[in-house]
């Protein structure tokens, strides 16, 4: 096949599009998850802590902790995973504080996001970047 200028441009545009599309769909998935959780409410900052390692050598098991005093629920999202949802922690009347720790999978270096729903119905969020040496989603 002879590579014309027009053909090369079309190829380039196609390649660029295929790079952009997955990123856009991932962002849409995150926005969907957030909208499901918040119902479209505004999200503020402060009052929530997310503890993550700066560098995770093994993406299969990354220890994280979230805490948001006065929250009724905390959602955790991994923005760079094939499915960004990680989990939603709902706290009952016998929770001593609104905090929990677990271990999660991260597919690669990415932002981990935590959003808390406060007792008054407001939302706050925090995001931490975690550098991952070996990804943990089996891909």
């Amino acid at each position: 096949m002879e590579l014309t200028r027009r053909g090369a441009l079309a190829l380039g545009a196609g390649a660029a599009l295929s790079l952009v599309l997955p990123a856009a769909s991932a962002r849409a998935a995150i926005e969907d998850s957030i909208a499901n959780f918040t119902g479209g409410a505004d999200i503020g900052e402060g009052g929530i802590t997310l503890t993550t390692p700066e560098i995770a050598e093994n993406g299969n098991t990354v220890p994280i902790s979230v805490a948001a005093p006065g929250a009724v629920a905390i959602m955790v999202l991994a923005s760079g995973n094939p499915n960004p949802d990680v989990g939603i922690f709902r706290f009952g009347p016998l929770a001593a504080n609104q905090a929990a720790s677990t271990r999660i999978r991260l597919n690669g270096t990415q932002d981990v996001i935590a959003i808390a729903e406060m007792a008054d119905g407001s939302f706050v969020q925090v995001a931490n970047n975690v550098k991952v040496t070996i990804g943990g989603c089996g891909g």
């Binding site: 299969n60 990354v62 995973n81 989990g87 939603i88 271990r103 999978r105």
Partner: peptide
Amino acid sequence: VAVEPAVS
């Protein structure tokens, strides 16, 4: 806790 596949 609602758990998703991203939990180890």
